[in-house]
Simulated assay, not measured.
Amino acid sequence: MERKDTGQSAGHDSVTQQDRRVRNLDRDEALRLLATVSMGRLVFTQRALPAVRPVTHLVEGEDIVVRLDDGPALTCLVTDPGTPGVVVAYEADVIDPESHLGWSVVVTGFAHLVADAEEGHGSAERLRPWAGRSSYSAVRIRPDVVNGFRLEAEPREAAP
């Protein structure tokens, strides 16, 4: 008897790679999904090399406000007054580890430190720390490019 490899474990009805499809998200849906989670990864340049930090965030309109507890990351994001900021990427996702279904969003744009006047509006105070540090700064990212995709299960055909 020949066994057909379906990519599924015996007795486990999982979604196989052939059962998944990628659907690109439009800007509005990507930002809406980003607002449903509180953590992601900030990608920036540190000493001419890419650096990634896990951070908490919130979405205000189209802006993403991130909490930074890391001193070296802050020094990389300080810009001269009058400049648009530092180019960064921000990524967040929710992918099920079993089925590999879910979504991922990447935002690329200019980041600048949140000024004291902006902190009075409450955005910086609403950012929860992901690690137990009390000292932090907030960074606002103005998205230029918003990309995202959803990994979805293909509908299965009924057996004859």
Rank of each mutant, 00 (worst) to 15 (best):
28 D>H: 10
132 G>T: 08
23 R>W: 06
42 L>V: 06
73 A>H: 02
113 L>Q: 11
139 V>G: 01
101 L>E: 08
92 A>Y: 02
95 I>T: 04
27 R>N: 07
51 A>C: 09
95 I>Q: 05
31 L>D: 05
111 A>C: 08
120 G>W: 07
91 E>M: 12
59 V>G: 02
73 A>N: 01
41 R>Y: 12
137 S>D: 13
76 C>N: 06
24 N>K: 10
60 E>K: 13
80 D>T: 12
24 N>M: 11
93 D>I: 07
47 R>H: 14
140 R>H: 02
39 M>H: 12
50 P>Q: 11
131 A>N: 10
45 T>D: 04
140 R>Q: 00
59 V>R: 06
27 R>C: 06
32 R>N: 09
17 Q>G: 11
139 V>K: 00
99 S>N: 05
74 L>W: 02
61 G>M: 07
6 T>C: 02
107 V>Q: 03
72 P>C: 04
120 G>C: 06
11 G>E: 00
60 E>I: 11
57 H>L: 07
9 S>F: 13
75 T>P: 01
79 T>R: 01
31 L>W: 01
81 P>A: 05
94 V>Y: 10
126 R>E: 09
132 G>C: 05
34 L>K: 04
58 L>S: 11
85 G>N: 00
10 A>H: 11
61 G>P: 13
52 V>E: 03
6 T>H: 03
24 N>C: 07
42 L>R: 10
98 E>S: 15
127 L>C: 09
111 A>V: 00
100 H>E: 13
73 A>R: 01
129 P>C: 06
77 L>E: 03
42 L>C: 06
10 A>N: 09
138 A>G: 02
17 Q>S: 14
135 S>Y: 08
48 A>R: 10
47 R>S: 13
131 A>P: 03
13 D>E: 13
106 V>Q: 09
65 V>L: 14
110 F>E: 10
78 V>N: 07
97 P>E: 15
12 H>N: 09
87 V>D: 04
116 D>V: 02
111 A>R: 04
90 Y>L: 09
28 D>L: 12
69 D>Q: 14
35 A>F: 00
115 A>I: 04
45 T>C: 15
6 T>Q: 06
